[in-house]
């Protein structure tokens, strides 16, 4: 038993040494001057931040941008405790979080969508709430055809769902959904394939689909046309900022990254993730 214990211990040590060696070798090489920038937070922002990070790394070869997810609250928290250099939040900072600084890199809006052939051109707040809570079940009650409404809702865990529920003052348990979908593309496909469906998706994705001959229609909200332009000028009511959050005024590499993320150089990346760039 003693022998076996010693053998096991030796094995563990060898394995660890083998794993740690390449690391120390790397540190000894010129790569040792690598600077690491850690971002944590919103899963909505994470794919965009990763892409921005890759382009930033290409411009600054001695910087590594590590993006981790975990949700907006985690991003805010990690930025506050210093666990992350920069936090990511897919919402504006709350009053309790006013000790932090936020930098908007993009905007995201949510549009109500219906099938292109649906004659209904607008729904007011009360009508949308009634449809999503199952009190209005037929399009003829809101001035449309005599056809049952198919309510498309987002699955739990999507920030789009949270934003939608928050805007209309609903709880997810109130919603009487017929179809529950995951991402934006699935929502667009579902509504485009069902003339009686109503759903809500990210505005950038919806606008792109509608302009590429997919049979959906964006409904205005509160009299404001659902468009990227109206998200940009803050007139569209159902929108949110995507923020980078820091504890103190950023300096050095963090500042360079935030400035880069807010510059026109990343607008194509922001649009590729169906968000609305702020820089022009």
């Amino acid at each position: 038993m003693k022998k076996l214990g010693i053998i096991t211990a030796l094995l563990i040590i060898i394995v660890f040494a083998w794993f740690f060696l390449p690391m120390s070798a790397n540190n000894a090489s010129p790569k040792g001057s690598l600077e690491k920038l850690v971002l944590t937070g919103s899963s909505t922002v994470a794919p965009l931040a990763s892409e921005i990070g890759k382009r930033f790394e290409a411009l600054h070869p001695n910087v590594r941008v590590d993006v981790q997810t975990g949700g907006s609250s985690r991003g805010v928290n990690d930025a506050r405790t210093g666990l992350a250099n920069i936090g990511m939040a897919s919402r504006a900072l709350k009053v309790k979080e006013s000790d932090l600084l936020s930098f908007t890199i993009a905007l995201d809006g949510i549009s109500i969508i219906t099938h292109q052939a649906n004659p209904v051109t607008a729904l007011d707040r009360q009508q949308i709430i009634a449809i999503y809570t199952g009190k209005i079940l037929n399009w003829k009650d809101v001035g449309g055809n005599d056809a049952p409404i198919t309510v498309v809702n987002k699955s739990e865990g999507h920030s789009t769902l949270e934003l939608f529920l928050h805007h209309f003052g609903l709880k997810n348990t109130d919603v009487k959904a017929h179809v529950v979908i995951g991402d934006n593309q699935q929502g667009i496909k579902t509504v485009a394939g069902n003339p009686n469906a109503i759903g809500y998706v990210s505005i950038g994705a919806a606008e792109y689909a509608a302009s590429h001959d997919i049979a959906i229609k964006l409904l205005p909200l509160g009299g404001i046309t659902a468009s990227v332009a109206n998200v940009l000028n803050h007139s569209f009511p159902l929108s949110r900022p995507l923020n980078l959050v820091t504890r103190e005024a950023p300096t050095g590499t963090a500042k360079a990254f935030i400035d880069f993320a807010r510059s026109v150089q990343v607008n194509d990346l922001i649009e590729a993730q169906y968000f609305v760039p702020v820089a022009h």
């Binding site: 390449p22 990763s50 890759k54 590594r64």
Partner: peptide
């Protein structure tokens, strides 16, 4: 984590 870059080491 979430970083999709080629890892240099196990750290």
């Amino acid at each position: 984590g979430y970083v999709d870059r080629m890892p240099d080491s196990v750290m």
